[in-house]
């Protein structure tokens, strides 16, 4: 046991440049895919509350597909679909796959938070002569976004951990780096634990960031 801890510490230190690079890739995958997913989510949330049957149906179909299939399948479909047809890199197919996936969950988060804003807010905007889109953009969405922050933060964390699946299409992000090192050294346990340390640190930092943003946005409370 004593020896193992020493070994683990040595592994952690020796591999730091490899894992720093891998962590950077994980961060990029997560940040870019979540960024895109926010727009996808907002778009489908607006479809869902549009009161237009066809649009609601499209949104429901999208969410049904994402929820009903494993993320790894979605990533591979994007990988084979996009790399072969559109000659897109592995990074972008993983990013788009993750965005497609997270977008559905974020759509539900936004839909819930938009609907949680009382209809009095909408009526106040409309009674002042603001049109539907002005009221949505300036009155409803800013409040809805604030309410969505805690579940969004949670979804970011899930997205960060899910980005590990990009290893299966050959990306050397944190989990990919760990399995590569494990295969080279025949010591999977050490490297998986090293990867766990990196994930914990990133999730911790992300949690801090989200609570910082929440505090900033709570100025009006």
């Amino acid at each position: 046991m004593y020896l193992n801890i020493i070994k683990f510490g040595e592994a952690l230190i020796e591999s730091r440049s490899l894992f720093a690079e891998a962590a950077w890739l994980t961060l990029k995958l997560t940040a870019v895919s979540i960024f895109i997913a926010i727009f996808i989510g907002l778009f489908f949330a607006l479809l869902k509350i549009s009161n237009i049957k066809v649009l609601e149906w499209i949104a429901n179909l999208y969410i049904f597909i994402v929820r009903g299939t494993p993320l790894i399948v979605q990533i591979f479909v994007f990988y084979y679909g996009l790399t072969e047809i559109a000659m897109i890199s592995g990074f972008w197919s993983a990013t788009l796959g993750l965005a497609f996936h997270n977008g559905a969950y974020i759509a539900e988060i936004f839909r819930g938070s938009i609907q949680s804003i009382g209809k009095g807010q909408n009526e106040a905007g409309r009674s002042l002569g603001m049109n539907r889109s002005q009221t949505m953009k300036r009155i409803i969405l800013p409040q809805a976004f604030r309410r969505a922050l805690p579940p969004l933060g949670n979804q970011f964390i899930i997205g960060l951990k899910d980005s590990s699946l990009a290893a299966f299409i050959g990306l050397t992000e944190i989990f990919g780096a760990a399995t590569t090192m494990g295969a080279n050294t025949f010591d999977y346990m050490t490297w998986l634990l090293v990867s766990a340390v990196y994930y914990l640190i990133l999730v911790f930092l992300l949690t801090l960031l989200v609570s910082f943003i929440e505090k900033k946005m709570a100025a009006s409370d």
Partner: peptide, 8 residues
């Protein structure tokens, strides 16, 4: 119920 915009 006033319906002021709470974020403003």
């Amino acid at each position: 119920h006033f319906n002021l915009f709470p974020h403003k």
